[in-house]
Computed example of a mutant assay.
Amino acid sequence: MKTWKKGLLAAGVFGLAFLVFIAIQATAKPPLQKDQARSQAPLVVTQQLQAQSHRFELQLWAEVRPKEQTTLTPEVAGRIIALDPNFIAGGVITKGTVLVQLDDADYQVALLSAQAAVASAQSALAQEQAQARVAEQELKHLSRDQITALALRQPQLLSAEAALKSAQAGLQKAHRDLDRTRISAPYDALVVKRNIGLGQVVSTGTALGELYSVEQAELYVPVASFDLAYLPAERAGIPAQLRTEHVSRDAKVVRDLGLINSQTRMSHLVVQLDDPYAVRSQQPVIRFGQYVEVRLAGRVEDKLYTIPQDALSNGKVWLLQPDMTMAQQHVEVVRQTGKFAYVKAGLTDGQQLILTVPNFPQPGMAVRTEQSDDKLVKAE
């Protein structure tokens, strides 16, 4: 009886275990199919790589300065009797405009006196020339050895010629002094300040005002030594573009200063802008003192891959393999800018660059793209 009970208990345990196994099999999920596993892989965005020629561009900053600046001073003394209306701080004037007119009455008198002196000297010279001809006729009967220069009145003639030249020089000076009573703009200019007023008596060398030329502006653009490598060897003539918040103007590099600043260790290129205040054109105005962005056109490099800066990490990128797995690749970067990196070696045309890398990426990790999802949907 006891053995029979033990056998019955064992059969019950075995039957219960069998029922549990059947229940587990009935509720267990079927194994994942290959397509289902792939559909759960991380989704990535890719970019197909294609090498292209690229012109480097340097983005720098510099202050706009006048190429010429002049402190206006008179060369003669006098009382100011007229001022140009635009000869005020902030006024823009064109070349040749008479900015200051001095009282020229005394200089008109001096001119008349110089003219009279010339006429008198010309008359004296004519008299001496006539007397020299008479003396030469009277001394014809004498031999050459007996005739002296004094007898021929040559010293008197030379003196009269010298007096005429002196009078003519005085006349030229009188004309210049009269012209100098009108003080004109030496170039198209911006008036920075005016130091004098109407009726004021000024002397030679008095500072009348300060002018900045608006015919051309210059910018001394600092360039780091590692950026110079991306510019052509011949600096003069490099195209440049000046940009502010609302304005863009074309300019050009005219020279390299040939120095390296001892404090900043920067080189400087001089960029020239024509007609910054648009006096003779319809271009937008760029003012002196503005700090503007300067974009310099650099050299052209063949076969570079342009990739987003975010796709590069420690000199490596992630690539999508044909079997939809990830692989890491070391690349040679030529230059990096704010948004992009330019790769010279390590990549080939047609490769798929992964732009959105999953968390905790590993070589060989399976991923999917929108294109692969589309293919999967169509296959189903």
Rank of each mutant, 00 (worst) to 15 (best):
W318G: 06
W318T: 10
W318N: 07
L319V: 07
L319N: 00
L320T: 04
Q321E: 14
P322N: 05
P322E: 03
D323R: 07
D323E: 14
D323T: 06
D323H: 08
M324P: 03
M324Q: 15
M324I: 00
T325Y: 09
T325M: 09
T325R: 14
M326N: 02
A327C: 03
A327M: 12
A327D: 06
A327W: 00
Q328I: 12
Q328C: 04
Q328L: 05
Q329G: 01
Q329V: 11
H330Q: 15
V331K: 00
E332H: 11
V333F: 10
V334Q: 08
R335Q: 13
R335T: 08
R335S: 13
T337C: 02
G338H: 11
G338D: 14
G338F: 13
K339P: 00
K339A: 11
K339W: 03
F340T: 07
A341P: 04
Y342D: 09
V343M: 04
V343R: 00
V343T: 05
K344R: 15
A345T: 15
A345P: 05
G346M: 07
G346Q: 02
G346C: 06
L347F: 05
T348C: 00
T348E: 09
D349F: 09
D349K: 12
G350H: 01
Q351T: 04
Q351L: 06
Q352A: 13
L353R: 00
T356Y: 03
P358A: 07
N359P: 01
P361Q: 08
P361E: 04
P361W: 06
Q362R: 14
P363F: 08
G364R: 11
G364W: 11
M365I: 03
M365P: 02
M365H: 02
A366N: 09
V367D: 05
T369K: 10
T369P: 11
E370V: 14
